[in-house]
Amino acid sequence: MNLQEMASLLDAKCISNDCDLSNIVINHAYACDLMSDVLAFCTPGTLLLTGLTNVQIVRTAQMLDIPAVVFVRGKVPLDETIQLAKDNNLPVLLTNHTLFEACGILYEKGMKPISRDREI
């Protein structure tokens, strides 16, 4: 699923340097408000959905090569978060859906969970 389709499914506003969101294709997603758990369980290349909006979400995304982040529940990220995301070419989607709804919508359209037997 590409980011353009995702934005449309989630009625999301996209903040991104890249004009063509359809270039970014993501097939796996992970939803969590605990960055420690994201670092422990999430695999690189996975979409992150979260209700936390501080700069550490972007830092976590950097560490794991997360290609895009969806902020749920209508949360507006801090200016510093948006700036850091732009500086790092990390597209960000803002949706009013709850975490559960956003996950449900994407899951229904074929988005897959991460594989849980991740071995380092």
Binding site: D33, L34, M35, S36, D37, V38, L39, A40, T50, L52, N54, Q56, I57, T60, I120
Partner: peptide, 16 residues
């Protein structure tokens, strides 16, 4: 509140 303090840090460092 910043998303840390789940008690996963040190075990995750060791694991990696």
């Amino acid at each position: 509140e910043m998303g840390f303090g789940a008690g996963m840090g040190l075990p995750n460092i060791k694991k990696n």
